[in-house]
């Protein structure tokens, strides 16, 4: 797999000139958009100023607001026409992110506007709450040696409605999961589900860990690796299958994989012959900048590393070792 050093060279030779070209697009895009924004704020300022300075009749204020509204619509249409061909965000994804993905592996394909399917997300059994809004982008799929993988960014939410003190209905959105969601073919064949959720309780409180899994069909399983137990709570439909999947070597590998993400919660599950990995991020990933220059090596490096860490799951967890009955 490509190293960070190789990526730096790739950045200088290929990516940089693309970014410089794209940054021109960004500037153009921002110029028109700031023109519109400037017009809007100017109009508001004038209306407010006129209202307090001259205290005219209401009709005059309404007339003024209407006039500005018409003017802003005209400017808006102009800005839209000028920038609609720019497709700044799309261009960034299809040119920059795509080439980073291809740089990591030629066997991977990238689709900016696709995502992991909701059925796959549900199948993972990682998040059991209801889903009311399912969004995502930056879909990557392909084969690393013998192992088929796919991942994308996802933002999954559910909503609650309640009546506030004035009797109005209020809808609130709650995040079920936001971050990178990865799925791959696992190298051992098995049925049932084994779920590893982040452990916030440390070594003790086994009782609470059992209670926390009470709503699941999977039962709490205590494993032999103490570091692993500190990192994850394991729930499984069958404790022997859980141990069949989580060999001592794999537990160590998962521990060191988790060390790549000191701040992000990582959940992993194994369901019917597939592995699912959910890495939570609070920020949106692989997005272009709008207010500052796009030509930044460190930003590209961090995008590269975010993608590479996920693609490397295959190697890091040894998924290409096919010495068991599954071909």
């Amino acid at each position: 797999m490509r190293s960070t050093e190789a990526f730096k060279a790739f950045y200088e030779s290929e990516l940089k000139k693309e970014l410089i070209a794209l940054d021109e697009v960004r500037k153009r895009y921002m110029k028109f958009n700031s023109l519109f924004l400037l017009g809007f704020f100017l109009a508001v300022a004038i209306v407010v100023w006129v209202k307090y300075q001259f205290q005219p009749r209401a009709e005059i204020i309404i007339g003024l607001v209407l006039a500005f509204a018409v003017a802003l619509i005209i400017v808006g249409v102009y800005v839209y026409k000028e920038t609609k061909d720019l497709n700044y965000k799309q261009d960034f994804k299809n040119r920059i992110i795509k080439s980073i993905v291809h740089f990591i592996s030629e066997d991977l394909m990238y689709k900016a506007n696709q995502k992991i399917s909701p059925s796959n997300f549900k199948k993972s059994r990682l998040f059991l709450s209801s889903i009311d809004r399912y969004r995502g982008d930056d879909y990557v799929a392909g084969k690393i040696d013998q192992t088929a993988i796919q991942f994308s960014e996802l933002h999954v939410q559910y909503k609650t409605t309640s009546n506030n003190s004035k009797g109005q209905r209020q809808t609130r959105w709650h995040t079920v999961f936001k971050g990178l969601f990865f799925q791959a073919d696992f190298n051992k064949d098995f049925e049932g589900s084994t779920v590893l959720l982040p452990n916030y309780l440390g070594k003790k409180f086994t009782f609470f860990k059992k209670i926390a899994g009470a709503t699941r069909k999977e039962k709490y399983v205590k494993l032999e690796d103490t570091t692993f137990n500190e990192n994850f709570n394991c729930y499984s439909t069958d404790d022997i299958k859980a141990r069949y999947i989580l060999s001592p070597a794999l537990m160590q590998r998962i521990n060191s994989f988790k060390d790549n993400y000191p701040k992000n919660p990582v959940s992993i599950s194994f369901v019917d012959g597939a592995i699912y990995v959910a890495i939570s991020y609070s920020k949106d990933l692989f997005e272009p900048t709008y207010f500052s220059s796009l030509v930044k090596r460190n930003m590209m490096l961090s995008y590269f590393e975010d993608i590479k860490l996920v693609v490397d799951i295959v190697e890091e967890l040894n998924l290409n070792t096919r010495i068991w009955s599954k071909e």
């Binding site: 051992k188 205590k222 494993l223 032999e224 404790d239 022997i240 299958k241 141990r243 069949y244 060999s247 010495i323 068991w324 009955s325």
Partner: peptide, 25 residues
């Protein structure tokens, strides 16, 4: 055959570990 043996050994090892865990408790 090698695959089948590796498979059974892995499952055997899982059963042993389950047993050891239960006995330890």
């Amino acid at each position: 055959l090698q695959r089948t043996i590796a498979e059974i050994e892995e499952q055997l090892s899982a059963s042993r570990r389950s047993y050891n865990m239960a006995v330890t408790e």
